[in-house]
Design a protein around this nucleic acid. Sequence first.
DNA 1: TAGGTTAAACTACTTAAGTATCAATAAAAC
DNA 2: GTTTTATTGATACTTAAGTAGTTTAACCTA
Lengths: 238, 238
Amino acid sequence: MNQKGGTNNLVFKIISNHILFKDFDKELISKIASNFTEEIWPAHTCSHCHYLKHKFHIIASGRLKIFNTDKETGREFTIFLLSKNDFFDVISLLEAGPHTIYYESLEKVRMISIPMLTMHEWLRKYPVLNQKLLPYVIKQLLTLEEYAISHTLFEIPVRLARLIIKNLNPDSKKIELIDDLSNDEIANLIGTTRAVVNRHFQEFKKEGILRIGRKKMEVINVPLLFKKALNNPKKTIS
Amino acid sequence: MNQKGGTNNLVFKIISNHILFKDFDKELISKIASNFTEEIWPAHTCSHCHYLKHKFHIIASGRLKIFNTDKETGREFTIFLLSKNDFFDVISLLEAGPHTIYYESLEKVRMISIPMLTMHEWLRKYPVLNQKLLPYVIKQLLTLEEYAISHTLFEIPVRLARLIIKNLNPDSKKIELIDDLSNDEIANLIGTTRAVVNRHFQEFKKEGILRIGRKKMEVINVPLLFKKALNNPKKTIS
DNA sequence: TAGGTTAAACTACTTAAGTATCAATAAAAC
DNA sequence: GTTTTATTGATACTTAAGTAGTTTAACCTA
């Protein structure tokens, strides 16, 4: 019905290439796309989870962090750093209990969204959608498991090294997604504070692992970085 | 075909009451049940994830922990403490990359299992199964998120108090599932060491929150316990 | 009940991480 | 181009948690 164009081109383009919907037939994709509306969050738009319970979003461009805060200490922990094609909130897909987390756009974020009710309806109507969703959720499960483990068993330098490696393009050897973040945001990603991150960055620099500029970083010794990522508390090297 | 009895009564009883299968019709449940075999792990049976990739298990009785170890320090972190009706390994349901975790039975564990291939086949054949699985996986996601957050932002006494609260029966006020664990196993659950757990147990005891015996514990002041669970680093009370 | 085994309690020490503060510097705004 | 703001770099200090080792108590069983 809304075939040529749907609500607009952006929505159709995203939906038809998206992991959740791409295998649906063209007709259905158009119908699905027509339910989405475009939404733009300016940089540093902050939103409480509560207000998002009624909407399901897919990111078209820009980065958005899901985080938790400890009001007492003011410290933050970035649980997920979402970018293109990621969607939220997965937890709200399940009618679970209260789930206090926050969202903030790191820059201007373009996204498409539908009412959560519609998404719920589709999940009932198209069981295949559950099949598509499951691998994504399990991948998030793995990510969180990794967080829990490394925040429990590993020290900051190890966590820092692993964060960089995880965002290192294996071909270009360039750091992606996080290379332009401040020390503060890096600290949030590994669950520590700015001062501690900076302390270890200085160490990494001195050891010739990283080259660091203002809001940019570059790996100059990959093997050494991988060595840092091993948990080796009793260093034999002086 | 294998209607009366199936492979045996235990399997049928578990399957027909299990969250994953209970809504299937009797015929299908019998067919499904006939694929399961019973398995018993004696107390302290330890198994590496690798060997379990080819099987899917549902626990009938006993406790089993999923954990990770840091070989360097010997420290352990219990990711999940599974008991009746829990199943594993969820991550292996997705054909993901390597996932190094370990399993150990805390006591004699009775379970029923099928080849992972069969489970994969069913997930394709019965999309409803994905629908049943999703809420469970999302619940695990929530649990891991909670771990990641509390291990990042909260100190040991808070984590200890929350662990107890999470396993506190709201009606009976009795601690369940973990009340007979050693300090060592408690430490694994909150990601610290035995000595530290004991240190804070002594504190809790002195403050009149807990009564502690050898491998048993009891809450004697619930409100104080809840107060401990709040993250309140700057205590005004001396 | 004696002897052995295991877990818990206690003490002393070490260290990484967190905190506070300020100076230096780059970027952005006016 | 000057002021303002944000980010980084650096120093000194505090503390919770980790580590090591010993003592005490509970439990088991021979």
